[in-house]
């Protein structure tokens, strides 16, 4: 088996592993973050491939889909769920900011390494910092959405 398939397999395994660490009382929060992230990646993933910004030479469902199903359907949404579940809500702004920077940086570094050394992803008109900015921004949006979703409605107990 080629290295690319091993990476995909381990991506599935590791992200599934993350799911087991999510506390039972936060499953609903995790699910909302997961689904919300999918809404964004479904569309954006198609757009970046359609306009030739990124290519995924090795991928699942290769015959009908040129986007990265693994990343967009599973890996990124699960990480987004983890992001929201363990978000340091009551900590200082500095800690919250570094939480964002940490998640975005780790994801970007892994993506750049994968881009450089494997055929899983190929930047065409894309740069590492665009990944960083978009990932960070989408985390932010997802966090706002989760806060809104679980906020108690005004006027109701």
């Amino acid at each position: 088996m080629k290295i690319e398939w091993w990476i995909l397999l381990s991506a599935f395994t590791v992200t599934t592993g993350i799911l087991f660490f999510i506390q039972k009382n936060k499953i609903r929060l995790a699910l909302v973050a997961f689904l919300f992230k999918q809404v964004i990646t479904f569309l954006m993933g198609a757009v970046v491939v359609e306009f030739g910004l990124i290519e995924y030479p090795v991928r699942l469902f290769a015959s009908i889909n040129r986007t990265s199903f693994t990343y967009e359907y599973y890996v990124l949404p699960v990480i987004c769920a983890a992001f929201n579940v363990w978000y340091p809500t009551n900590k200082s702004t500095l800690i919250q900011l570094s939480y964002y920077v940490g998640y975005s940086s780790v994801l970007t570094i892994i993506e750049v390494i994968i881009e450089e050394y494997t055929a899983l992803i190929k930047y065409i008109h894309w740069e590492w910092y665009i990944t960083w900015i978009t990932v960070c921004f989408v985390f932010f949006i997802s966090h706002l959405f989760c806060i809104w979703f679980f906020a108690k409605e005004k006027g109701r107990a």
Binding site: V47, V49, E50, G52, F61, I64, N65, T67
Partner: peptide, 24 residues
């Protein structure tokens, strides 16, 4: 994904023909 892959149905005219064969 599997339904389109195994030819249960297809979407000849679609929004992102280059990116995906699904009916978006």
């Amino acid at each position: 994904m599997p339904a389109f892959k195994y030819g249960l149905l297809s979407a000849p005219i679609r929004e992102f023909p280059k990116a995906t064969d699904l009916a978006l």
